[in-house]
């Protein structure tokens, strides 16, 4: 059995998949990957179904090694570098981590959440049907904890994967306002407040984690108080506590809560929103159900198209590979670093 061994990592490096569904009635937060688009990309690159459990990095990277065999891995999401024994991998490409080699994931230079997937997935026992780690309930991950130095993640058979692949599709470049649907408690706010929500600029505060993103901006006034009897919460709910400063509830949210929710981020825009770093300005735009569902369908189609956009890496320009293929003659210094080694 091959293990992916953690040599070092940031404090909120966790295992995440699609999330823990079906237990919210017992108070269990679904959790799951903050950016499902990026989780899907990393998984598809190594031949996995898009929602397979992977390592989620939050801002900080980490160092790993393979023990007991070779591992095919891929990274996607926030702009992190990936290197094997100091050689940088091209972006959107799966790489082979040979037994004993060192894999380094750099810190996020853009965005916040990155995903490292292993071919075949991790052989970690799911809890309540999911690998997803949830901090407050200490569910998921390895024994209910985030990853730390010394942890060994057992990998399934076939983890060495096939040929290195690259993805032609990249994360959709969207820059417009984050789309929301008004409700469920928009009637707790005046029309003026609803207008403010859509016409103002908000800033992601430093209090942004897997549970929720606190925003700063104009005060959103309540029309009839802010105490409601707790009701159900979903991903993307924008709740407004007494301070008037909204909080967007993210994957590790509670199952029920007691502040009025003015609007809900549409499912297709939640991954993009999750990648906004503290200090970033954000605007919201209210849309109707038809537009939100069309966007959800578009995202589903995009994920479904990922495997079809895979191509083998034809020129794996490592010196080792070039020499093994005997592609170069005596006039070229075959030991010089190849162009791709210096890129990214």
């Amino acid at each position: 059995m091959t293990d992916l061994v953690v040599k070092s990592c940031g404090p909120m490096t966790t295992l995440q998949d699609r999330g823990r569904l079906g237990y919210q009635r017992f108070g269990v937060s679904p959790s799951g990957a903050m950016d499902r688009r990026a989780l899907a990309m990393a998984n598809v690159l190594v031949g996995n179904p898009p929602d397979t459990g992977a390592i989620e990095f939050m801002n900080l990277g980490g160092a790993f090694t393979a023990e007991g065999g070779d591992l095919r891995v891929a990274l996607a999401g926030a702009g992190c570098s990936l290197s094997v024994d100091g050689t940088a991998a091209a972006p959107q490409t799966s790489v082979l981590l040979k037994e004993g080699q060192s894999l380094e994931v750099g810190h996020a230079r853009s965005g916040t959440f990155a995903y490292l997937a292993v071919a075949g997935g991790l052989a970690v026992e799911p809890q309540l049907g999911s690998l997803s780690f949830h901090l407050r309930s200490r569910l998921g991950g390895l024994n209910g904890t985030p990853l730390k130095a010394g942890d060994r993640l057992p990998c399934r058979a076939g983890a060495e994967g096939g040929e290195p692949m690259q993805l032609a599709l990249s994360l959709p470049e969207e820059t417009g306002p984050i789309r929301v649907m008004l409700g469920p408690q928009d009637d707790y706010f005046t029309p003026e407040t609803i207008r403010l929500l859509q016409e103002s600029e908000f800033t992601i505060s430093s209090q942004a984690d897997r549970m929720g993103f606190q925003l700063t901006g104009p005060r959103l006034e309540h029309a009839k108080g802010f105490n409601i009897v707790s009701d159900g919460i979903v991903d993307g709910h924008i709740q407004v506590p007494g301070s008037g400063q909204p909080i967007v509830l993210m994957r590790d949210r509670q199952t029920a809560g007691g502040y009025p929710k003015i609007a809900t981020v549409i499912s297709a825009d939640l991954g993009r929103f999750a990648q906004l770093r503290p200090g970033t300005a954000v605007r919201f735009k209210a849309v109707g159900r038809d537009e939100a569902v069309a966007a959800a369908r578009q995202l589903k189609d995009w994920i479904a198209a990922l495997p079809g956009s895979l191509t083998p890496v034809r020129f794996n320009l490592t010196t080792e590979h070039l020499l093994s293929r005997n592609l170069i003659g005596g006039m070229v210094n075959g030991l010089a670093p190849a162009a791709s080694d210096q890129a990214s």
Binding site: V180, G183, P184, Q185, V229, D231, G232, D235, H237, A296
Partner: peptide
């Protein structure tokens, strides 16, 4: 029936315990 984004809705029977 209150919308909760595109992926959920809440059916509300009242506002009290």
């Amino acid at each position: 029936i209150l919308p909760c984004g595109d992926s959920a809705l809440t059916v509300e029977f009242g506002q009290t315990i």
